[in-house]
Design a protein around this nucleic acid. Structure first.
Lengths: 189, 189, 189, 189
DNA sequence: CATGAATGAGCGTTCATTCAT
DNA sequence: AATGAATGAACGCTCATTCAT
């Protein structure tokens, strides 16, 4: 049992690594197999296809990401403070998980995967409710969730990618400025 | 003379369309040729390789995009008003050019093209200077250009992509709200 | 184990045959595959490229050829007798291995392979030494090795090619005459 | 008239040069056209095909070569002296015409052209007769013409190729030695 | 479960040849 | 005669997937 999980996990880990480095289309299954120390054939025992493997990877990363958003228990803070903390959590997840971030970006921009429906992870519901309440209370501007997502997570990911690629060097002070800009923008009045 | 330009242009147009729909790696040269109504070989008369064709496409789109930013002459407005107008221009360019937008996103996230240096188009310099001045005057928060780019163009593109995919429906009122959020966030005090 | 060797060997054998018949550039990999009864892809499992396959073929033929030179133990004969025997051995190898001979000729005259360094096969060193000694003793004319090679192996190969092409019919008597001519020419005084 | 000849000649000259450098299969017609300063299409006005162009080149080189053999009027010398002079003429032609030599070698070893019949150029008949007479007189060993050709022209070409490739440096003294070896070998008694 | 040899469709690219101008 | 854009078959090679062992 542990063994099975181990091999499956090894494949997933290696796949993530290699897909992030080489891109989806420059990462042959045989390379994943080789780097994971398994045979090419066995991958098809655990995953139906390369596509399925990638989808599964996406799912797992999403779960990890969702969990990371709750560091510091933002659900217990006020609307604005919650927003700020969640933003930092997202940014820090991205910045400290380069392969995951590069993978997500590729996945979400691949026309191949473009039509995958994304329903919000159930675990994230407390945050959604918190935000809805803040909107109703007139604390946060009334914008659709997907727009709010862009203005927060989207920006966090873009910045993290720049940081990862070292095209910018964001220190704590600058991050504060950026978080302020975002929070200020989304606050009413 | 016109003929040459025509065929070259037909290839570029078709390539853009197909690359946006299928993605770089699921768009064989033979498909571009077929859709453009030309033979596979002739593409190599106009472009050195598939890679060169894609780079050229990128270059041309960037030029069109840069030009689009100047609609309404933002360079003649005050720092804040200029920022707001440029943001709208970017958003409208993206939203009204879905293939270009999908292409740009893929291009800029392709590991294959990740190392292409991007110096700001010279035509865009007036806007850069305008912004620098606004920062110096303390009107806009002092953040690196790449960060400001994320908070403006990056957000505009993400929203446009959502709009294109009909995952959201942004009317003028909502766009105003969003533009306000961004401008407010970037304004000092 | 035997199987692997079998398929690799089948590819090499078929490649030799086809390359000799059609020439390097008129022998598609797909033809080699078809004639060898394997898929096109599998060749690349055993050889890195068409070029590598050809180089490997050359190497193997050279080894076989070198071994053939020692039939009758020429290294134990006097300088002159050794020379004569080696010449016959070379000629007989060529004449009894038409594909190998045609292949060698193409390989060594291909601009593509013109710059391959050819150090004498280590197995051949005894013969080289024997010849050097005969030169030092004043039995054989003092000419560079490459020139001696031409006057012996070169001539043997050319004649063998003519024989193979049936442009001449060299019986034992005539071969004796030719060998005599060569040996006489290279003998001092 | 002169113009036609000029363009045809330009194509032939350039073709020779490029074919010698790159080999038959790495010399596109378009390269020949470009280097000759003509259009790709016009070549097909003068030559039926690439193959026909190559055959024609071969024919012309053979004529030049045959003429070169008569330098110093060997047909007026004694059998042995004639043989020696012809050998030198052949060698010097090869060495002073590298493109022609590399071309000839490729041509004659190409399986594609292997079955071209080679009847001795009529211009060469005086030499053939001279040799036949010398054989009849018992001065030169009685060997078929093609064998004698190998032992003389064949060796001369091989050595010239080595000289051209600078794999050996044959000075006059050494050439004398080699010529002596050949002549001695072919002389009776 | 596990291997890795084997398949074969598909890709990017080349180039001899043609033909509208 | 002359051009060079255009064609399209063919090539070397890759790789997701299968399957005998």
């Amino acid at each position: 049992m542990t063994k099975v999980t181990d091999k499956r996990a090894a494949i997933l880990n290696t796949a993530l690594e290699q897909l992030a480095i080489n891109g989806f289309h420059n990462t042959p299954m045989s390379l994943i197999a080789k780097e994971a120390g398994v045979s090419a054939g066995i991958i098809y025992h655990y995953f139906e296809s390369k596509e399925a493997l990638i989808h599964e990877l996406y799912r797992e990363i999403k779960v990890k990401f969702s969990a990371a958003l709750f560091v510091g228990e933002p659900q217990k803070l006020s609307g604005i403070e919650s927003l700020r903390l969640v933003w930092f959590n997202a940014y820090h997840f991205y910045v400290s998980h380069p392969p995951e971030t590069l993978f997500l970006e590729q996945y979400e921009n691949s026309p191949y995967f473009r039509y995958t429906v994304e329903d919000p992870d159930s675990v994230v519901i407390p945050l959604v409710e918190k935000t809805q309440q803040a909107i109703k209370e007139g604390i946060i501007v009334d914008l659709p969730f997907s727009v709010l997502g862009n203005l927060t997570f989207g920006v966090a990911m873009s910045l993290a990618k720049q940081q990862i690629a070292k095209r910018v060097n964001l220190d704590e002070e600058m991050l504060e400025k950026i978080a302020n800009a975002i929070v200020k923008g989304l606050q009413t009045a």
